[in-house]
Amino acid sequence: MIEFQFDSLFNFLRMAPHGIYIWPVYGLGLLVIGGLAIWIRYQHRQAIRKIRRIMNRESIHEPKA
């Protein structure tokens, strides 16, 4: 049977005496993985914008029938 190992939320956040090591690690994890996800999404949008620009330029220069 698993049970919560801390007697209060404060003690959970304090994780005495190692909270100052544990929370920055998880914060960094969130930052790196979240940052990668956001950066990849941004790159994807940039790629779509680039292709749209090329398509618009081509449609302007297309000879009209």
Binding site: I2, E3, A16, H18, Y26, G29
Partner: peptide, 24 residues
């Protein structure tokens, strides 16, 4: 992560610092 940080028991030698294992 919630299980590892809050519900797993502390290590008898390393105490709570071992909880970094769940990411590292």
């Amino acid at each position: 992560t919630l299980w590892g940080l809050g519900f797993a028991p502390a290590d008898y030698q390393q105490g709570n610092s071992y909880r970094i294992i769940y990411l590292h």
